[in-house]
């Protein structure tokens, strides 16, 4: 990889622009898609690889290429700067997620409690309107407080995000479902919420709950 290609690839990754690095296997010549002009058939392969977020080989007009998409990181938005969030944020980062913690309560959402994590001190629904969750976003509500969790869930359910989880027992969730129904959300919408949140590993402590949540997010992401 030439210094120029590396610099352009790294600049694209830093800007969050989705790109694909195309490498001709016979001689190592490289193109950065979509910045560089490439054959139509190769462009199609690049687009598909970016869409599927999957690298792989391709043969185009008798030449072997390797197509490697570099999509911006998946996002994990955590509502509630609570104890579990302190453990979920670094686990999310380790799984490759860009993590944002949302909590208007400044006493909770501090840099000391969340070193290196992007903090938003707005109300969750406003924050989510700004963050615009997409199909590469997971949202987890952890506050236990309907005033914070419910608006977040209502906003999350109107987005195409791939995962929505809500902390709370079965009883808490049953009450939450009643409120969401009353707010006009359909059964289909409500069924998108993973609750009680996380894989059932018998989690008790905050780090264990965080582990069960991130495991469920990864499972959903991988189609399980």
């Amino acid at each position: 990889m030439t210094p120029e290609t590396l610099a352009r690839l790294q600049a694209a990754r830093a800007s969050g622009a989705p790109v694909a690095l195309l490498t001709r296997l016979s001689d190592g010549a490289q193109r950065l898609f979509p910045e560089d002009e490439v054959l139509g058939a190769l462009a199609d392969v690049a687009r598909e690889a970016m869409e599927a977020d999957r690298a792989g080989p391709a043969t185009v007009e008798g030449e072997s290429w390797f197509v490697q998409p570099h999509n911006p990181p998946l996002r994990l938005v955590i509502i509630g700067a609570v104890h579990v969030a302190q453990h979920l944020a670094p686990l999310g980062a380790a799984m490759g997620f860009a993590v944002t913690v949302v909590d208007p309560r400044r006493a909770f959402a501090t840099g000391e409690r969340f070193p290196g994590v992007s903090l938003v001190h707005e109300w969750p629904d406003e924050a989510l309107d700004t963050l615009r969750p997409d199909a590469r976003t997971a949202i987890v509500t952890l506050t236990h407080d309907p005033k914070l969790d419910d608006p977040a869930l209502e906003t999350a359910l109107r987005s195409p995000c791939f995962y929505i989880g809500a902390l709370g027992s079965k009883r808490t969730h049953a009450k939450r479902v009643d409120r969401l129904r009353a707010a006009g959300l359909t059964e289909e919408d409500i069924a998108r919420i993973a609750a009680p949140v996380g894989l059932d590993i018998g989690a008790v402590t905050a780090p264990e709950i965080a582990l069960s949540v991130i495991a469920q997010v990864v499972a959903r992401r991988r189609g399980r």
Binding site: L6, L9, Q10, R13, A94, G96, G116
Partner: peptide, 10 residues
Amino acid sequence: MSEDILGTAE
């Protein structure tokens, strides 16, 4: 925190 092989290599 997350793996960034290219970043490390750079």
